[in-house]
Design a protein around this nucleic acid. Sequence first.
DNA 1: GCGTGATCTTGAATCAGTCAAGACTGTTGG
DNA 2: CCAACAGTCTTGACTGATTCAAGATCACGC
Lengths: 145, 145
Amino acid sequence: MPDTMKFEEMLRDAGLRVTRPRLAVLAAVTDHPHVDTGSVISVVRSDLGEVSHQAIYNVLSALTDAGLVRCIEPAGSVARYEARVGDNHHHVVCRSCGAIADVDCAVGDAPCLNASDGHGFVIDEAEVTYWGLCPSCSVRSQVAR
Amino acid sequence: MPDTMKFEEMLRDAGLRVTRPRLAVLAAVTDHPHVDTGSVISVVRSDLGEVSHQAIYNVLSALTDAGLVRCIEPAGSVARYEARVGDNHHHVVCRSCGAIADVDCAVGDAPCLNASDGHGFVIDEAEVTYWGLCPSCSVRSQVAR
DNA sequence: GCGTGATCTTGAATCAGTCAAGACTGTTGG
DNA sequence: CCAACAGTCTTGACTGATTCAAGATCACGC
């Protein structure tokens, strides 16, 4: 499993100690795009045995601060995490089932950052969330009517 | 106070019964852009006397469903409401103090809806949240360093 | 005015997330 | 290789926003 070594290196490079919970969380977030915290806990526990939920919260927070994972919180959803960081991409969220998918930004590389009037705010990021229906919910709603 | 009559009309047009809590909530959200639920409760209570928090939640939900107010939930913040609906505008959020301001969309009227690849999702809305520092937090951080 | 269904009150419950204190362990220097 | 010191993890209590449920009340059409 060369992934473990890669994760170790990522942690060291970020100045973080290498611990089993951290490796397991990195693996979980990498394997399951857009996992919520509860699922991370399940996956990590099925991997390592009992791990405190507090530890998971600590680890997710540390990894987020270090820029190794990214936290997204669509309205009405709990916090979710993804390992795809450093690029500019956004998300589509299904209004019906909450499914999330990645969407590359349509407006180029450092996009959307040109707000017409920022009210004096110093803006450093534009986060785009697309809302709609995922393929299966879309089909279901057509059948329903 | 002609506003009250306007709010009454808005409720009736939406097929909702006209009640004092609803009028008070509509007034509160109109007067205080981006209020959180707790502040709505305070404002309504200072206006009407005791009103159950559950009633406020019900009203906010009914008004949101009716399209009379809009609910926004920036990551890390509680639910907030605004009465500016029907136009396409987005928000800037201060990473430091959580202040929110409106931003007109930079890309035209029905903008940003062109995701390059929606993974088969039927997209009906693009929500943009700009992140940065509000004027006063921006000044403070410059002084600090 | 009256009846009915929508709305509000009350009070308990849930759930994600946070706090705090002590036990443990990865890492660094000797 | 070992010890010591942070940095991490465990445990267990706690918070705060939001939701649920059941009964009382009220707005609106007749």
